[in-house]
Amino acid sequence: MATDIELLSRKAGRQAALAEAGLADLPPEADLAGKIEWTRLRPLLSGEEIREMCEEAVRCGYRCICLPLPWASHAVSLLASTPVRVSTAVAFPLGTCIQETKVLETMSARSVINADINVVLPVYRLAAGDKAGLRAEMQKIREAAEGAVLSFYVETPLLNEEEIITAVRAAEMARADRVIGGTGVFGFPTIKEVALLRCAAPDWMEIGAAAESTAKGARLLPFLAAAGAGSILAENPHLLLGFSAEEKD
């Protein structure tokens, strides 16, 4: 008898194959901008750069911009009258700081009203087989987030299928709102990995995926969405969405 992991893997494989074959529901090109979370996690950002980002996000119809915590509140104030949301990252990019530090950082992020919180999942706990520790840490972070929209980055390029499924189920137990495939630091999720996240997650949980801002990323973008990605995180979305059909090929 097939295990639950094997069944989910097969289901994800079928979903990914349908997406790649163009047989799944591919979103209209105009809808892709509405899935974009513009991620600019850099140590140097000026007020003028943030203002320009906010204006471009509104003009292009992006769903969100993600900034380091020191600049998140300024972006929230600039975008207050618009539908564009703001998020900030915790424990980025490695997720290896101690639990107490992540909790404090999450509490600091929660102090920015109306900002979503994206936390890097501690993949080292998965590698060590510390499932109980993983669940406990994610639950503490959920409590520290106090009702804010909470996402966990899952470094799918570093994990096997069983570990990906375990991460999603731990996020479900912690009542996270979203899991995000990859940070982009160690690679980007494949179509099947996105499908696996979608198949392993409950219906109420959103799936995100990091995408590289290249012609290859642009070519994969609709297939990632068809495989189950409700949001796409990109550092340069104007590039990602701007490649011509010839460049994508």
Rank of each mutant, 00 (worst) to 15 (best):
M1K: 11
M1C: 03
D4A: 14
D4K: 09
D4H: 12
I5V: 13
L7G: 04
L8T: 09
G13L: 07
R14G: 01
A17Y: 08
A21S: 14
A21W: 00
G22E: 08
A24E: 06
D25L: 12
P27Q: 04
P28C: 12
E29T: 15
E29H: 09
E29M: 14
A30G: 00
D31E: 15
I36G: 05
I36V: 15
I36S: 04
E37Q: 13
W38Y: 05
R40Y: 12
L44A: 11
L45F: 04
L45E: 04
S46K: 15
E49Y: 04
E52R: 13
E52T: 14
M53Y: 09
C54Y: 09
E56Q: 11
V58F: 04
R59T: 13
R59I: 09
C64G: 02
L67T: 10
A75F: 08
A75E: 11
V76P: 01
L78R: 15
L79V: 02
S81E: 02
S81V: 00
T82M: 10
T82Q: 13
V86R: 06
V90I: 15
F92I: 09
T96W: 05
Q99N: 14
E100M: 00
K102V: 14
S108N: 10
A109P: 04
R110S: 13
N114D: 15
A115L: 06
P122E: 09
V123C: 12
V123I: 11
R125D: 02
L126Y: 08
A127R: 15
G133A: 12
G133N: 11
G133T: 11
A136M: 13
A136P: 12
E137N: 11
I141Y: 13
R142P: 10
E143M: 14
E143W: 10
E143Q: 15
A145V: 09
G147C: 12
V149L: 11
Y153F: 06
L158G: 08
L158I: 12
L159I: 05
N160S: 05
E163H: 05
A167R: 01
R169A: 03
A171S: 13
A174V: 07
A174R: 01
R178D: 03
V179P: 03
G184L: 06
G184R: 06
T190V: 09
T190R: 09
I191H: 02
E193C: 08
L196T: 02
L197E: 05
L197W: 02
A200N: 08
W204C: 06
G208E: 14
G208D: 10
A209H: 07
A211K: 07
A211G: 10
A211W: 00
E212F: 02
E212D: 15
S213D: 15
S213R: 12
T214G: 12
A215K: 02
K216I: 10
L220M: 13
L221E: 06
F223E: 06
A225E: 07
A227P: 02
A229F: 11
A229N: 15
S231N: 14
N236F: 01
P237A: 11
L239I: 00
L240N: 08
